[in-house]
Design a protein around this nucleic acid. Sequence first.
DNA 1: CAAGCGGGTTGACGTGGATCAAACGCCCCA
DNA 2: TGGGGCGTTTGATCCACGTCAACCCGCTTG
Lengths: 247, 247
Amino acid sequence: MPNRAVVPITVEGLKTACSQCNLQELCLPYGMSEGDINQLDALVGARRKVKRHQHLYRAGDTFESIYAVRTGSFKTDVLLEDGREQVTGFQMSGEIIGLDGISTDAHSCNAVALEDSEVCVIPFANLEEISREIGSLQHQFHKVMSREIVRDHGVMMLLGSMRAEERLAAFLINMSQRFTARGFSAAEFHLRMTREEIGSYLGLKLETVSRAFSRFQENELITVQQKHIRIRDIDGLKALLSHLPNV
Amino acid sequence: MPNRAVVPITVEGLKTACSQCNLQELCLPYGMSEGDINQLDALVGARRKVKRHQHLYRAGDTFESIYAVRTGSFKTDVLLEDGREQVTGFQMSGEIIGLDGISTDAHSCNAVALEDSEVCVIPFANLEEISREIGSLQHQFHKVMSREIVRDHGVMMLLGSMRAEERLAAFLINMSQRFTARGFSAAEFHLRMTREEIGSYLGLKLETVSRAFSRFQENELITVQQKHIRIRDIDGLKALLSHLPNV
DNA sequence: CAAGCGGGTTGACGTGGATCAAACGCCCCA
DNA sequence: TGGGGCGTTTGATCCACGTCAACCCGCTTG
């Protein structure tokens, strides 16, 4: 019987410690007291490395843990029977993946590494138990879930009501903000995903994404060289979102 | 100073009891033991009636409670500065509204009654406190949040990757299932929302929704009379979703 | 170093759904 | 009971984005 464990995903027995982690401010411990954070060190079971293009989990896998991205980045997607893919999100360091699995004890989407990455494995039963003791952890976890819901509503707005260039502008602004929150440049960054993945996320074809990038470059809003993006006029991008189409 | 309390939203001091409620199986108490459910009777503060077209809450309102729909139904939506609306969901009896507010302590969307309705008000601090004591409640609440995330992913799939008739078919199938779960007919029901609201939810214009309804009727999949829908061929509708466009 | 290939760009053309417009029917209210 | 208005249907036309196709670029691999 073919064994999925053959693929080189390594589960490292490393003891991990939220209290030592520089991603505290972005992750589950956010807003907790120093004392409470120390109690979290029992929470994270292990780290796990996931190589580029490998699955962290697949739709249908039984759900046991959620994951905090330590390094690298991921996409999550859902597939239709006929092969159509919808990318539901891109996740960067400090962000939580796997919340989709709680509802049915099985994951409902796929999580794939966009680059060589590492996650903290958080056994969910463990999290529920500890959060029954630490109210601030409980509350922060609820905020993380709620934030995911609000984010999804934003994507629904984007997919349901915006035109192509508005969608791409919203995407770039969002990426810029998230890089900023991680101490990287707000104006210059490297996209880890392909045009096709961006397109899937934004409900567009890759050609449309490419054309919109080119248009933005013509209008001196950004500079594009393959996956490298430099934002030259963030206000110009924001203006694409906030005013009436023909004003 | 104009006072919003003037509008006839009534907060009734009625003592409510999850243990007596016939929506248990759809709502937060789902899966809990009888003993645990009795403990919930302290959870729900009061009921609140909301008349058709009135807001249960608005984007920006401070968050204090989530709500369980007792009777009637709601829509939630987000608005763009220029007035564009995206309906993010329709909620029926037993379903929970307001989870968007947890993340920032303020609501990020609007909740509007589609008909005269009534909700159970669940003070959120209260819920967190009790769920620290009752593990099964904690877990069920997490499932409710996760289910919302999974549902949102489904809508993203729909908005990002499906064509108009597929979207409407998915919508009708979903409505049918939810009516069934509530003991109503799977084949015949009354839509409480307008074509425009359906369109906003599905990322389509109302004319497109109307035309798709007419097409379904021509093809003998359904019968439409205004808001009254009768499903004549559920498998035909499902087939619209699951096969390749040109097979 | 050449060949192959995945990813990206660009152009020409087609089309699904948007837009604009008219008319209808149900329902509420005077 | 009759008028008005909102919601809906339907038709004609338009256009943003999809589709198809060619080509380019940078990397990998033999």
